[in-house]
């Protein structure tokens, strides 16, 4: 199922960026909760929030500090654009580089001339990406938990909901990594398919953003991967955890199976 020497090698290659990402998002979460709970922004934001038009309010619900509570701030941190960008880079670049980038450099040819099965190579790549994403998400959760504990705002409920959000976030980016891997398995040019994966992800995000205030696009929601990651609603129990996880898990599995099938049958490099 997995090649440990290859896994160790991939960890060695990605370690600096994974550690940086984990520390960075952890610090960001810490900062969001710390600032929110240190200064009393609630009356200021409340005044602004009450004056914005309803369409913009819908926008703020997901993108901003929902209900202006510590829970909302914690959930907001997990949806911060910087967090999404860092996880996106990790999800797309790691997968695409190892199949297409190393193919360009000839390393893929060398690796697979060893007694290393293609399925095992692909699985190792997938699982290593999952591991790196998990470390980064764990970093974010650690930052949030630390700030909540230090500010004496920690409750079992907020810990549980934040953990669910973290798992949900991990699944979302694992799906992005999975379709990036699938695209990489279909071709050999890194640039082309790396860009394709990024374009697809950004398109999903843009449609998710637009459809949050444009009701005519509501019908697209079930087909958008970002509709299955709603941290604010998750924090306040407005969506069920498994309703988000199951569709993402299904799509991850589908992409993985298709990717491994394609990769094991294609010419290399």
């Amino acid at each position: 199922m997995i090649s440990y020497p290859l896994f160790k090698l991939l960890w060695k290659i990605q370690r600096p960026f994974v550690i940086f990402s984990s520390v960075f998002v952890g610090f960001l979460q810490f900062l969001v909760i710390w600032i929110f709970s240190t200064l009393n922004y609630v009356p200021i934001f409340d005044a602004i929030y009450n004056q914005v038009p309803p369409h913009l309010k819908v926008l703020l619900d997901e993108q901003f500090m929902y209900r202006l509570s510590i829970n909302g701030a914690a959930a907001f941190g997990m949806n911060h654009p910087l967090v999404l960008v860092i996880l996106g880079i990790l999800a797309v670049a790691h997968s695409v580089r190892l199949i297409n980038g190393e193919a360009e450099k000839g390393l893929l040819e060398l690796l697979l001339s060893h007694p290393l099965g293609r399925n095992r190579f692909f699985s190792t790549l997938f699982l290593s990406t999952a591991f790196f994403l998990l470390i980064t998400v764990s970093g974010a959760l650690t930052g949030s938990f630390t700030a909540l504990i230090l500010k004496k705002q920690a409750t079992a409920g907020i810990f549980l909901n934040l953990s669910k959000i973290g798992i949900n976030l991990w699944f979302l980016f694992l799906l992005i990594a999975s379709y990036s891997l699938l695209l990489a398995a279909y071709n050999q040019e890194r640039g082309k398919f790396g860009v394709a994966a990024v374009v697809i992800t950004l398109t999903f995000y843009l449609l998710h953003f637009i459809s949050s205030f444009w009701e005519e696009l509501d019908f697209l929601k079930p087909f958008n991967i970002f509709s299955y990651y709603l941290p604010q609603k998750q924090m306040f129990g407005e969506v069920r955890f498994y309703q988000n996880i199951l569709p993402l898990a299904g799509l991850i599995l589908g992409c993985f199976i298709l990717g491994i099938k394609k990769f094991s049958g294609r010419d290399l490099p």
Binding site: L9, K12, I13, K105, G106, L107, E109, L110, S113
Partner: peptide, 10 residues
């Protein structure tokens, strides 16, 4: 391989 390539930072 003819175009022998390895990971540079090893």
């Amino acid at each position: 391989p003819g175009d022998f390539s390895v990971i540079d930072n090893l």
